[in-house]
Structure formats: structure tokens, C-alpha cells
Amino acid sequence: MMLGEITPSLIAFILGIIFGTQLNYKLTKGMIILLISFSIVASLLFGVFTFTYSIYGGYIAPGIGFSMPLITATIGIIIGKLLKR
């Protein structure tokens, strides 16, 4: 496992927080669940980045992989929004 598999997710998280602070919308609990579940489904559809071979990079089994930055970015946006309040 190499660092390059984790760093993108971390960067996505930080960027998510930055842009989350710019949201001007009251997030309900339902909306948060909706966003996270949608992002998980979407990340499954997009699949892992090339050359990532670990569970941190999103690779779980042949044919199944999550695009981790998408999930962490969504979580980051939600956290950023909650921080701003």
C-alpha cells in the first residue's frame, strides 16, 4: 500500500469542508442520510481509481471498488456545513 492511495481521499475531505462552508441551506437528518447513501451508490458506479490496490484506495474485490474521494468529499461538505452554522 502506498501513500498515494490515501492522499486523494484526504484532499477530497479538506476540499469538501472548504466548499461545505459556502452552503446556505438547512441540512435535515434525512437529507444527510440521502446524500451519503447517494454518494456511496455513485462511488460504486464510478469504481476505484486506476493503480489503487487496497481497501484504503477503495479496492475491495475484483469488480467491486468504491471511489473513496467521492464519499469523503460528501462527508466533508456535510461537516463543513455543520461547522459554519
Binding site: 486523494p8 481521499s9 484532499i11 477530497a12 476540499l15 469538501g16 466548499f19 452552503l23 437529507m31 440521502l34 446524500l35 447517494f38 454518494s39 455513485a42 462511488s43 464510478f46 481509481f49 486506476t50 493503480f51 489503487t52 471511489s67 474521494p69 467521492l70 468529499a73 460528501t74 466533508g76 461538505i77
Partner: peptide, 19 residues
């Protein structure tokens, strides 16, 4: 939600730039 997910998608795109 569509707009927020688009933002996360954009962030995903930029993090995957080199691979």
C-alpha cells in the same frame, strides 16, 4: 442534493487527476 453531489463529483475528479 443533486447540486451537492455534483460538487463532490467535481472534487473526486480533481483528486484523480494524475491516475
Amino acid at each position: 442534493p443533486a447540486a451537492i453531489l455534483l460538487i463532490s463529483y467535481g472534487i473526486m475528479i480533481v483528486t484523480g487527476s494524475s491516475t
